[in-house]
Write a protein that binds this DNA or RNA. Sequence first.
DNA 1: GTAAATCGTTACAAGTTGTAACAGTGACTC
DNA 2: GAGTCACTGTTACAACTTGTAACGATTTAC
Lengths: 175, 175
Amino acid sequence: MSPSEADSALPAGGGAFLLTQLGTHAAQAFAERIAELDLTPPQAGLLRAVAFGPGRSQQALAQQLGTAPTRLVALVDGLEQRGLLERRRNPGDRRLHAVHLSVAGEAVMADIGRVSRDHNDAVLSALDPAEREQLRALLARVATDRGLTPGVHPGYRTLSAADPGSPSREDRATY
Amino acid sequence: MSPSEADSALPAGGGAFLLTQLGTHAAQAFAERIAELDLTPPQAGLLRAVAFGPGRSQQALAQQLGTAPTRLVALVDGLEQRGLLERRRNPGDRRLHAVHLSVAGEAVMADIGRVSRDHNDAVLSALDPAEREQLRALLARVATDRGLTPGVHPGYRTLSAADPGSPSREDRATY
DNA sequence: GTAAATCGTTACAAGTTGTAACAGTGACTC
DNA sequence: GAGTCACTGTTACAACTTGTAACGATTTAC
């Protein structure tokens, strides 16, 4: 636990490890928060993507989120049945479904924003406002450097770690 | 994209969101790195836990990692067949299996440390050493405040988001 | 006007994870 | 000293989520 160990030798003491540890923790805490709105994190992410760019096709949304179009079908289905999303036929090209937010969907988006702010305050409660801004600036620089799309989680994509000869179980996980 | 928006309104611009975004990204990058050693992140986590406290029982390891003892069985099985871990019968209490690292396991631990250092440098390449230490200190304070166990990922535990009446699919994900 | 391409949908299959029940061993009590 | 209860590790089972492939509907190109 000495600082010299944490800096030089220990693999679990580096900033990258802390990043994954805290990131997973923050994701779990956020999932519990929005569960109060009867929403899951993927649903919230889709709502946010639609709110950011309304009227897009499902394939465009899938490409931005980095997931397969198949997943979007069930996702949009659930939110449409709850009256939060609408599939509108595009008169110009009747193949694609323009996805829009309903009035109820916009209200839920406001709720999501409120929950996100509470979540943000809870996670960063150990830091004062100046330190929070300091952390945010550092993280934003790292995110830009790594080529991350603003506002989109990389959790939609699957990691490919297939090696021949590896055992069938215990292959891949979020860790 | 203006700073005022990111600070006050946008739910995706806060530090907590950046934390989950970067945490997932770092976890994926680490998974790709250790795949070169034919290891998965859970396997690396178990090896690290055993190296940190050798000779513990599987239940003790499961409790520390926050996972079910069932998962540890297959995990230890795979690493034992590869000659990295050893199950030794404790003469004092023949019920429990004392889990130790083999010589090959210690060598792999050295490889993991090397890979982790490279991974750490790659993820934080946008920051100079002083900024990395600054970020590390801020993250460490948040992690302590949130009660996270040093060196252990919270990804082993399952999130419970069960609500009656919710659809069977699209329930829960890492996001 | 016919053929190729695109979008959304559905059905199928694979993999991973959690829950519950089962032998072996030790501790405690009478 | 025998019996009962508690604990460790293991195995088998079931549920869930995710990715791949094939199928109508519609548009564009030749």
